[in-house]
């Protein structure tokens, strides 16, 4: 099994950059934050959600360095880059411009999933914005990214195509999932295979994203299942409204209160408590048989082998799970044949 093969199957294949919008949000030294610039436009709900995410990031991190986080809302990936306005000597702009500003956040909206790529662009945008204190120059950079797919500012040049061959996400932790849940991990796999509504709770956002994407990697068989993954969602009505018409999704949430919305999930995964609960209305859909148990045992055994890499682990599990699905298909066929007979 070659690495490239794994890439294709496991992960969302790297897609060319499709940038939609860019926003600048300034965080005051107090509690306030304000969207000061947008191109081409921003919506109220979208910005509200964005503000909440930034507030959450701000709460959890006190370090002075740059932070990059991302989430998905209505099929659009939002990459948030937050950094303090690092004023270098020799900058043209007087410091008073950023006197009251604690941090600057740049939010890039895109259609493609590629956190690494947009972290780099986001950081560049912040630097441009802080150094020039002129959104027009930022706009020029943004348009250059849209039109030519690259940015050039002072001595730095970043090409969007640079990331086209790199996996957008590699930080899976299936092994940790299996050690946490043991043979119950099969429930997660089955839920994804059977397209149930899975909601994952974890306190820390980074861990949450890793867990959600790992669960997806366990069970997804086609690229388009990535359409249904929302690694970081807040427990708010306006944000959850996007799911009303969906009957399959994997949603990650850092608010424990999400469990109090019973109609929202079929399977609820509480990672800190190592609990998987299947909603009563989904129990019928989650019936499992002997082959499932075999797969579960196989997963546990495999994860105990420290020599196998995370990728190989995922790959092996997928292979085994494929057998499962084939078997179930056969069973279904037999059942339907029997009915017809």
């Amino acid at each position: 099994m070659t690495q490239s093969n794994v890439e294709k199957v496991i992960d969302m294949p790297p897609a060319p950059a499709k940038v939609i919008a860019c926003h600048v949000i300034e965080l005051d030294k107090g509690d306030g934050m304000m969207k000061t610039w947008s191109y081409p436009a921003s919506e109220r709900v979208q910005m509200d959600i964005c503000f909440r995410k930034i507030a959450k990031i701000k709460k959890s991190i006190s370090a002075a360095g740059a932070i990059a986080k991302y989430y998905k809302y209505c099929k659009t990936w939002h990459y948030i880059n937050i950094s303090p306005p690092l004023l270098e000597s020799g900058m043209k702009i007087a410091e008073k411009e950023f006197l009251r500003i604690d941090r600057v956040a740049v939010v890039i909206e895109t259609e493609d999933f590629n956190p690494v790529r947009y972290e780099e662009f986001g950081n560049l945008f912040i630097r441009v914005f802080v150094a020039e204190a002129d959104p027009t120059i930022l706009l020029r950079q943004f348009l250059s990214l849209v039109v030519t797919g690259k940015c050039h500012w002072e001595n730095t040049t970043i090409k969007a195509s640079k990331f086209d061959s790199i996996l957008p996400f590699q930080d899976f932790r299936v092994r940790s999932l299996i050690t946490t849940f043991g043979i119950e991990t099969i429930v997660l796999l089955t839920a994804v295979l059977r397209k149930q509504r899975v909601v994952v709770y974890n306190r820390k956002v980074d861990g949450l994203i890793r867990d959600v994407l790992s669960i997806l990697a366990l069970g997804s068989r086609s690229d388009n299942q990535w359409d249904n993954v929302y690694p970081w969602v807040g427990d708010n009505d306006d944000e959850l409204a996007q799911f009303t018409d969906m009957n399959f999704y994997i949603v990650g949430c850092a608010n424990a209160t999400i469990e109090n919305r019973p109609g929202f999930h079929d399977i609820f995964v509480n990672i800190p408590a190592a609990e998987i609960s299947v909603a009563s209305h989904a129990k019928e859909n989650m019936m499992m048989s002997k082959p499932h148990k075999e797969v579960a045992l196989f997963m546990v055994q495999l994860s105990e082998n420290e020599e196998i890499s995370e990728y190989d682990l995922i790959q092996e599990i997928r292979k085994k799970a494929q057998e499962l699905s084939i078997e179930s298909h056969q069973l279904k066929k037999r059942a339907s044949d029997a009915e017809e007979a």
Binding site: Y39, D134, P135, T136, L139, R140, L143, V147
Partner: peptide, 13 residues
């Protein structure tokens, strides 16, 4: 178009 946009942006600024 880009120039136009940037011009507008300048005005907007």
């Amino acid at each position: 178009q880009v120039e136009k946009l940037i011009n507008y942006s300048f005005q907007w600024e």
